[in-house]
């Protein structure tokens, strides 16, 4: 599913690349060649969506197969401001309301988990099916260096800081068995349990961001940005899972340039 979305995005962008040759509007010239400081600022409002995963870096061996992956509807809205130093370099920042979410269904073996049942817990290693639902909303502040590679294309490189507004990280453990405490603990068969680690997530995420802005028409902006979280999703004292997870999402945005 995700591959299809990614492919669609690529097709869209490639199609846009073709458009470059035909178009004549030189937005950049307009905004840079005038020397007045006020015109060095470019403002845009964008709406878009995130595709990606909140996932470990490389699948741990405990995950034996990914049975399904569904990017959930994760919209973003953002306002950006860009200051152009000259006709090549600029600095972009803004405020973005960001939802990062997905749903997965995986078959796992010896997957360390704390299963919550109404506030009570069993901790151990689980073998069976694990579903995970992530739905986190953030207020994100990106800071990006912008380089103009052609009249319609900018590439961007920088970082971001996100503050969690609301977070959900939950799921189920079914069709399997749990070893209480460790792989040599008592075996509990027929596990049908839920877990919820929503409160164990960090309230802040920060990472790197790389992307492109494409301006096909005077006021239209299409952007593609990869945001790669560098902070583990969970707090450092969180031990209910044996590996760290990170937010890695690709954002497709459509904007209006003022």
């Amino acid at each position: 599913m995700k591959k299809i979305y990614t492919l669609l995005a690529l097709i869209l962008i490639c199609f846009a690349v073709e458009e470059v040759n035909a178009a004549k509007v030189r937005v950049r010239e307009k905004r840079v060649e005038k020397a007045a400081p006020a015109d060095r600022f470019v403002f845009a409002a964008k709406a878009g969506f995130n595709l990606g995963g909140t996932a470990p870096m490389g699948l741990p061996a405990e995950i034996r197969s990914l049975n399904s992956f569904k990017p959930t509807f994760s919209f973003t809205i953002a306002g950006t401001a860009q200051y152009n130093f000259n006709n090549k370099w600029g600095l972009q920042s803004g405020v973005k309301f960001d939802i990062k979410g997905m749903q997965t269904d995986a078959t796992v073996k010896n997957y360390q988990l704390v299963v919550s049942m109404d506030g009570s817990t069993i901790e151990g290693v689980f073998t069976g099916d694990v579903t995970t639902k992530v739905h986190n909303s953030y207020i994100t502040l990106p800071v990006l260096a912008v380089y103009d590679i052609s009249p319609r294309w900018d590439i961007k490189l920088g970082g971001y800081v996100s503050f969690m507004v609301n977070g959900e990280f939950s799921g189920t453990a079914t069709n399997g068995y749990m070893r209480d405490g460790s792989p040599i603990g008592p075996r509990v068969d027929g596990v049908d349990a839920v877990y919820d680690f929503s409160n164990d997530m960090r309230k802040v995420d920060a990472g790197i961001q790389v992307g492109v802005d494409f301006i096909p028409y005077k006021h239209l902006l299409v952007s593609g940005d990869l945001t790669w979280g560098c902070m583990p999703l969970f707090k450092s004292d969180f031990t209910a899972m044996s590996f760290n997870m990170y937010n890695v999402y690709f954002n497709i945005g459509f904007g209006y340039v003022f």
């Binding site: 990614t6 690529l10 490639c14 490389g58 699948l59 995950i63 990914l66 992956f69 492109v212 690709f250």
Partner: peptide, 23 residues
Amino acid sequence: IVRIIFALAMPLMVFTSCIKDEL
């Protein structure tokens, strides 16, 4: 540009493609 886009999108493929050998 196409290469850049691909380079950016590649990491996303990581999640679905590499199931490790069973321990």
